[in-house]
Structures are given as C-alpha cells and as structure tokens.
Design a binder for these strands. Structure first.
Lengths: 164, 164
DNA sequence: TCAAATATCTCGATAATCAAGATATAAACA
DNA sequence: TGTTTATATCTTGATTATCGAGATATTTGA
C-alpha cells in the first residue's frame, strides 16, 4: 500500500505519527486477513485476541471491551463456543455472571496463522542490539498505554453522550 | 486491559512480540471507537483511513484492500458518498473504472477525532532524543513492511484456496 | 424485606455482507 | 477489423451480524 503524493513530512515528530498511522492501518488489515483465513468474523477474531491477552473474562467484560451490545456478544460467544474456541463457565462468586474461558490453544489452525508473523517479527527483532530492542519494547508499552487512554476517553464520551 | 497471569516472558524478543500484539489489539479497538464516535461502521472508517493514506483509488482497489466483495464495496462507497466523505469520479483512461476521491477533509468531526491521539503521540515523541525517535520511526517503517508482506501472503493463500 | 441495580440471554427489526448475475468497457486474438 | 475473452462496477436476493428493547435471574443497598 503506497502513500500518495502528499507534501513530504519534514518534522520528525509528524513523520513518526504518520508511520504510526500506517502501522495502525496495516495492523487492522492484517487482523482482518487472519480472521478471514480462520473463517471468523472480524469481531470474533478480535475477541479471540482479547481473550488471549486477558484470559477468562465475563461476557459483560467482553461486551464492554469490544463495544458490542450484550445481545451481539452473546451471539458471538455462541459462535466461538460452537467451534470449540471458548467455553462458558459459571462464576461461583456471582451466579449472574458467565465466564468465557479460551479454549483455542488446542486449535492448530490458530497457532498456524500466528506463526509466519511471529517468525518475521523475531527476525526484525534480531536486527537490533539489546539496547535498541529494549528501547523499542518500552516504546511499544508506552504507545499501548496512550491508546488505552484514548480508548477510555472515547468510551467515556459515548457514555456521556448516551445519558444526555 | 490487563494481562492475565501467564508465565512471565523472559526472552527479550518474545517480550517484544508480546508488546507488538498488545499494541495491535489496542489499535483495532481504538479504530473501532473512533468509527463509532463518527457513526461509521468499522469497514467504513477503515476505508477512510485507507483513502487518507493512498489518496484517490478505484472502487476495485478499495475492494481488494479491504477484502470486501465488490457489491459490499459499492454499498460502502454509497454510504460514504451520502455523508460527503468521498465522491465518485470517472477514470478518463478507462471508462469502466470509478475513482473514489476522499472529501472528508472538510469534515471537522473527522479531524476532531484525530486530535487527542495526535497530541498524545506528539507528547510521547517529545520524550525521546532525535536519535531515539529516528530509530523508532525506522522501526515502525520496517514493521509496516513486515505486516504488508504478511497481508500479501494471506491474500495469496486465500486466492489459491479459492481456485482449488 | 423490598426496591433498585446488574448480568446475560431472547427477540424482532435493520442493514452489512456474500455470491451470483447484469451491463459496459477494454484487451487479446484471429 | 471483428470477435472472443477478460475486467470493472453495480444490482439483486439470501444470509446473518448487530442493534435496542425486553425478559429473567441474581445481587446490592436501603
């Protein structure tokens, strides 16, 4: 995906931001591609990704994180449960809550889709010194924190919009 | 979004990859949040993003990049055209082709959603020396290239799967 | 104890998306 | 030059994700 002819960015910080955006778009497209490869809808694959990171969470938490209505989340979980990617479990502390437990580790096709990017990223990491890699990793951590805050504010804004 | 209790990652390269994944998930969630704020479907917002980077492209190219069927792409373009985000233009070199021209720059609400993240990223960039920022920017460039290659391979695989 | 709040699922309506097909145009071939 | 094949985009009917409202069960707070 080539960039069209805009005014060339000369400020290093603006250039940095432009590359962050480019990486963002490719990330989304990559995830869509993996979802399609696995025969999953985009939100289904995103949920797999969330569960991979967070481990077992409630249906309601998944609904909040994905931004889906609770009914859509139920349907999504049904789909994932049907193909063996998750299972539902009762919460012994709160009988209203349903815990969604990831179960896709046993699914070879899931790790199979991760593998090529994993290898390519290992190779990219290998091109840096230990110090450089540490700097980059720390940067990724900080960038993630920035995005989390932005996501939080977007949600807060839509909450207050809803109640007004 | 906190990480659940996995075995702590000790290898720096594996840690790097883990943070890349975390950033990826937040990126997708952030984009969904912005789309929702703008009242756009996720694919609509992604298309705005693609057009922002690539400038005017044909309907078919947009279909390929988003992975949407051509009919869905037509409907998507209809929606964006309806709210003034894009306009259709004939290609003088090939009368079959329709060029999709971005027109959302005039839409204040679009730049308004970019603004908070832009500011936060400027601030993050400011915490680095010139050399560090250059290293990070170059890294982002390379990571994007890796993702592009992976996207390409995913598409190639699904093409060959289709024709078999 | 009762009322209010919370969690998840059910349900009917809306609309995105798919695949097949239609139509116009361009490229390739005889 | 004319015909056949390929390409580009839109149309169409079917499928299904998603929404918002509502139902039911459980928990919390007064």
């Amino acid at each position: 995906m080539s960039r069209h002819q805009q005014a060339p960015i000369t400020d290093p910080k603006e250039q940095f931001i432009s590359y962050m955006r480019g990486l963002g778009t490719r990330t989304v497209l990559y995830q869509h591609g993996v979802a399609s490869t696995l025969g999953l809808y985009n939100q289904d694959y995103l949920s797999v990704d969330i569960l991979r990171e967070k481990g077992p969470i409630t249906a309601g938490e998944l609904s909040k994180l994905t931004g889906l209505a609770t009914g859509s989340t139920t349907a999504l979980i049904d789909r994932l449960e049907k193909i063996g990617y998750v299972r539902r479990q009762n919460d012994p502390h709160d009988r209203r809550k349903v815990i969604i437990v990831p179960a896709y580790e046993h699914k070879a096709e899931v790790s199979h889709t991760y593998h090529p990017l994993h290898t390519a990223m290992l190779e990219l990491a290998s091109s840096y010194t230990d110090e450089e890699l540490a700097l980059i990793t720390k940067f990724l951590d900080k960038a993630s924190t920035v995005l989390e805050e932005q996501i939080y504010h977007l949600h807060a804004a839509s909450q207050s919009k809803t109640s007004s």
